[in-house]
Design a protein around this nucleic acid. Structure first.
Length: 239
DNA sequence: AACAGTCCCAACCGCGAATGA
DNA sequence: CTCATTCGCGGTTGGGACTGT
């Protein structure tokens, strides 16, 4: 008897959930989707500058935007926020992404927290378009041990060398200068010790080092494609 | 110039977690 | 404790930009 009652109650709940889902879908269909217009952007920016972020569904309605709260949040966080950094992912940023990804995997938002001005979406896109492309060219799985070894023992040292060679040490903020030292000795030392000297130890928060005052230091373009030739890398793999 | 293929990124989707009533 | 709502995350996709033929 009780079981019957419970079953029918569960059934009711499921039905209701389905109805709510359908209703939400209907609302979402009625709201605008696709690329944002300048007008919508302006509405969102001016509303947030007056009232702040959060309560996205309410915000969307109050700002007169016919969008889901979700869509507003995404647009703001990934595109309109004033502290967003634009342009290529720098060598330094590439290094950090590779390093942090090796630790945490696809925890994009966590990785993004250590790259000020970069969004999780941007980092995710970088990984999918650049890093996975390289894995594909090398005919190995991006999650395979082989590819992880390539990153750790080949790619990252190259990035550090690159950092050192393109760096005018005088122009580097003090807190970063250890990267240059690290780079010169990376190939002959363990990756762990290099990591320590680059970051100042495991406990160091990357964000504290990579503040927006880095200036041009970040903007030396996408060096990834020029780091190695695939013949070279294949030889290394065969060794 | 025209077309096809590829790259890249903004935006969407589904799901689980967090929060509030 | 339960349920509804909102938020945030990671995965995926559509389509414009770019490149090669």
């Amino acid at each position: 008897m009780n079981i019957c009652r419970t079953e029918s109650s569960n059934c009711e709940t499921l039905k209701r959930k389905e109805e709510v889902k359908k209703f939400k879908k209907k609302i979402e269909i009625e709201t605008r989707r696709g690329p944002w217009t300048v007008e919508e952007d302006m509405k969102l920016i001016s509303y947030i500058s007056l009232h702040g972020e959060g309560k996205w569904n309410f915000l969307s309605h109050s700002a007169g935007l016919n969008r889901t709260g979700k869509s507003c949040r995404l647009r703001w966080l990934n595109y309109l926020r004033p502290d967003i950094r634009r342009g290529d992912i720098s060598v330094q940023e590439q290094f950090i992404i590779l390093e942090l990804h090796s630790r945490w995997g696809n925890r994009w938002s966590k990785i993004a927290q250590h790259l000020p001005g970069r969004t999780d979406n941007e980092i995710k896109n970088y990984w999918r378009t650049r890093v996975q492309k390289h894995a594909k060219l090398l005919k190995c799985d991006v999650n395979s041990k082989q590819f992880k070894d390539i990153i750790k023992h080949y790619w990252m040292p190259r990035l550090l060398e690159r950092i050192a060679s393109t760096q005018n040490v005088e122009s580097v903020p003090n807190q970063y200068s250890s990267a240059t030292t690290a780079a010169t000795s990376y190939t002959s030392s363990s990756s762990e010790s290099v990591r320590s000297s680059f970051y100042g130890g495991d406990q160091m928060e990357y964000g504290t080092k990579l503040d927006s005052n880095g200036g041009d230091w970040f903007n030396d373009g996408d060096a990834l494609e020029t780091l190695w030739s695939f013949d070279e890398l294949n030889n290394w793999l065969l060794e």
